[in-house]
Design a protein around this nucleic acid. Structure first.
Lengths: 349, 349
DNA sequence: CTGTTAGCGCTTTCAT
DNA sequence: ATGAAAGCGCTAACAG
């Protein structure tokens, strides 16, 4: 058997010749079967089968038609983690739903943080872009805009010329923060990283203006507003910054907080994963949720229901679908996605 | 600001003309910057900036070069679940590693089970294919082969003309089944679905020859061998078939088994997710692992370590990378990936 | 270092 | 219902 690697290309012209028809008749056989006589069609298909022709070349077709029927998804520097992040997975599934429905492919553009990332954006044969939430200073944003194709950013940052699909993270954080911190004496926050350097740290309420991830910044500001509304000064709120959205890391950092001389009695996390880690740390410290420590998550994933976590519900899947439609050239009625606070047994109020 | 949707294409020829150089000098500016004088290069880049030219058109380039620098990943009919399946996520991350390293994109080909799936395979502008484990009768396999490009199947089925990358599932199942069933009186299996119809059911050891998913078939046969080696007849082994790889479903079905008149005292699952669900069901029934019920998982995911599950360790990520290299035209030394049994506290032996 | 020529494989347009 | 011509935007191969 011939190696597929070495397979020479069979062209439509060769098929047409063998079938004894013009190239256009062969082309119509694939693109407008109705416009070709049964006789011609079967001759073309027979010739194709004989030559092992598997249909018009996608690149040539894209060039000629001016469309690739493919959407590009830019996963920022998360690449390595993106597939393992359940939020990102739901989001991708939402994009995939729409792509499958419309017969589009989705190309994942592997970004590494290296200088050639923008190069890859430029080289992407896609009709539109979807950018998974990234930092204000991410150079890919400019590269995507320069492509002059429909493009959407999920979460943020807002970029002139690109659509934005996101919930109001600040309002949602304010709302769930109010529930988390109700009745607490020492509120704390477990946060996503503040910059692309992904440094983990524990600080009193940090200056949010320097936070380059807009989603994280908005949530911190919402938590700040919630804390202040409950009577706390932001600099007295302990903020534990994790390098990644990861249950194990959140568990470790929560264990540290809980073993300090002034352990928190309310911890608002930024994902259900993190909250699950926090809950484990609380139990390991032989403390009770919510009596000793109130805990809140974010996203209302399966784990939130299982652990009875109070959390922010949003549909990443629906947002992924909205992004895909926008990248297909169908701008959303509104980029503001819906959210709600789901109250369960992990909080006091 | 001009809408990006309506943006007209700027061509290299236009850039060259404005820069006052030939098209080839403009082309070299992008492809072999070293072969162009500083002067010419800056003129070209200035012209490109003025016109808003963002680099050579990817489709035209692909057509001319005969390569797309993109790998196609076929996720079978799992699409909707694939991103949420942690095994698939690791596998995709492994592919992404290699793609990022080589500057390749990866196109997810959304398969739905509908008749036009093969159409989408044909329309994919990719240099090679990676097929995520599917059933023997999946029509996409023929479509992929017909593309005559390097192609790899992960897990199975083995198809003439396509590479196969997999662990020896039967041997691994035999090995972990021996550990799971040691000292048991009533062994049981929690299985992936047996056909693409994904029917859930509880049966005595089923006829494995009719199982169309080769990975599932091999594992069932391995479990059968393990059970028989331990002294059981296969038809006395209860096999609970789940529709999906999902902790919640495994928990429900395990709860049913445990509340029967002859509850199993050893349950071998096909994933750590399923095993985690089984462990929850065991605890909910106020039974102890492994004293009352031994439980084994598969994959050695994070949850396995956390729950102390005895499991089969394999690196889906490494296998994904191997598949990607093979799809890039670099055939693996061997398609047989490595695995091992990790013994923890969830089994008796 | 720069330019000319040719043509990748296909489909749109316009005839017949 | 079928076909001829033209050209999508680019780059390999070769001159100069």
């Amino acid at each position: 058997m011939e190696s597929p690697v070495a397979a020479k290309r069979v062209t439509l012209a060769q098929v047409a010749e063998l079938a004894g028809v013009s190239v256009m008749t062969a082309s119509y056989t694939y693109n407008r079967p109705g416009r070709v006589s049964d006789d011609a069609r079967s001759k073309v298909l027979a010739a194709a089968a004989e030559l092992g022709y598997s249909g018009p070349d996608p690149s040539a077709r894209s060039l000629r038609r001016g469309t690739t029927r493919t959407l590009g998804v830019v996963l920022g520097e998360h690449l390595t983690y993106a597939f393992e992040d359940p939020q990102a997975a739901s989001f991708l599934a939402g994009i995939a739903d729409v792509c499958a429905d419309r017969g589009y492919g989705m190309t994942i553009l592997p970004i590494t943080g290296a200088a050639d990332d923008t190069e890859r954006i430029r080289a992407a044969a896609v009709d539109g872009f979807i950018v998974w939430t990234t930092s204000d200073d991410d150079p890919i944003l400019g590269a995507v805009r320069a492509m002059r194709r429909p493009a959407v950013v999920h979460g943020g940052p807002a970029v002139d010329g690109l659509e934005l699909v996101s919930i109001d993270n600040r309002a949602a954080a304010r709302a769930i923060g109010a529930v988390a911190f109700a009745g607490a004496r020492r509120p704390a926050v477990v946060s996503f990283p503040l910059s692309r350097a992904r440094i983990s740290a524990v600080t009193g309420g940090p200056d949010t203006s320097g936070v380059l991830f807009p989603v994280t910044r908005e949530r911190l500001e919402g938590y700040r507003q919630a804390a202040e509304a409950t009577g706390f000064a932001w600099h007295d709120v302990v903020v534990a910054v994790c390098a990644h959205n990861d249950a194990a890391e959140a568990e470790r950092i929560a264990a540290t907080l809980l073993s300090s001389t002034e352990p928190p009695d309310a911890i608002a996390a930024m994902s259900d994963e993190q909250a699950a880690g926090v809950v484990r740390a609380v139990r390991a410290a032989r403390l009770a949720v919510p009596h000793d420590v109130a805990v809140t998550g974010w996203d209302d994933a399966a784990v939130a229901a299982r652990l009875g976590l109070t959390t922010v519900a949003q549909s990443l899947r629906e947002q992924g679908a909205t992004c895909a439609r926008a990248a297909l050239g169908q701008p959303p009625d509104s980029g503001a996605a819906s959210w709600s606070v789901v109250r369960r047994a992990s909080t006091r109020a």
